[in-house]
Simulated scan of single mutants.
Amino acid sequence: MSKIPLFLLTGLVVLLVSNVMAASSAARSNLLGAADPKVSGEYAFSQCRALQGKPFASNTQKKKALIVGDSYGCDFLNSVLENGYLKDYQIRVRFIPYSCQTVLGEGSEHFIDAKDRAFCAKPERADSLERAKVQIQEADLVIFSARWKPEIAEELPGTLANLGLKPQQKVVVVGSKFFGKISVREYLRMSDAELKALKNTVDIAEAKTINATLAKNLGNQAAFVDPHALLCGEGARCPLFTDDLKLISYDGRHLTKDGARYVGKVLFEHSALGQM
């Protein structure tokens, strides 16, 4: 067997090390950009704002999909768009801020904190289920995605009943997700292998309890998708990076662009969403 000349072997080692260092440097650069709340925050909401309250077009054969929810609904929209899902649908959004989450029915205003009621009552500031009801009834596919409050999750079956949804409408409820505290300075000191293996321990009440309520109570009213179970498993530890070292969430709750692409693939490939 012929031997590789020493100078060639040395060159190959140098090239390999250089490539590894370049890849690691690129990963750290990507991390800093993705963790910037101004940059990723603008990304998280920009496409959501463009579709908020926009009516369905009548001059197309495409079906109608409506995403109803808060900032987590915007995350879901980004997960769809980053992967090119729901191409057969014209997609619209009804954005209802977290503080304005309510049920549909008598006494619904009592589900909004007193300090938020004036803000939530202004159509130019916040949407509502009551204002969105007509468009919800018009959609072929309705996806509710939110950082669910416990009391809203409890009342969701009644809310769905009061919306007057038709049997032919497809309804999906996407549960809550949470990735815990993000510590960029700490991640910059870690090796690639450590980042890939890194998982945060998250608040079990936020991560699992509300989703368990939704899964138990919805019955056959809607298909339920549990992001925590799909992304983190049955425990309380969630990954922070994709296999190619891309940061999933920039603040523990909302997704980076790479995170939206990653989360979307997981949700659509392992739940009822893939059949839509």
Results as ranks from 00 to 15, higher is better:
R189M: 03
Q169A: 09
L231T: 10
I182F: 08
L198F: 15
K64Q: 14
R28I: 06
L16N: 03
M1P: 09
F224M: 11
V14T: 04
A272T: 04
L32S: 10
L156E: 07
K3R: 14
K3P: 00
D251S: 11
A153Y: 01
R92L: 03
V142D: 10
A212N: 14
S58F: 07
L195S: 06
G259I: 03
A272H: 06
A215D: 03
V134F: 10
T102N: 10
Y262P: 04
T102A: 12
G274D: 08
F111R: 04
V171R: 13
E206F: 01
L195M: 13
H110Y: 12
L267G: 03
G11L: 07
G33T: 03
Y43D: 11
L195C: 02
K257T: 13
Y250V: 02
A205D: 14
P55G: 11
E155S: 15
D36T: 07
S24H: 12
P157C: 04
D88Y: 10
G84A: 08
D36N: 15
D70H: 05
L12I: 12
G105C: 02
P97C: 08
E124Y: 09
R117D: 12
Q52C: 09
S24N: 14
A114H: 09
L31V: 03
F178I: 00
E138V: 14
V173D: 05
G252P: 02
P157L: 01
D70Q: 05
R189P: 01
L12C: 15
A22R: 14
S18W: 15
G180H: 02
E206A: 08
S128A: 00
K208G: 01
G11H: 06
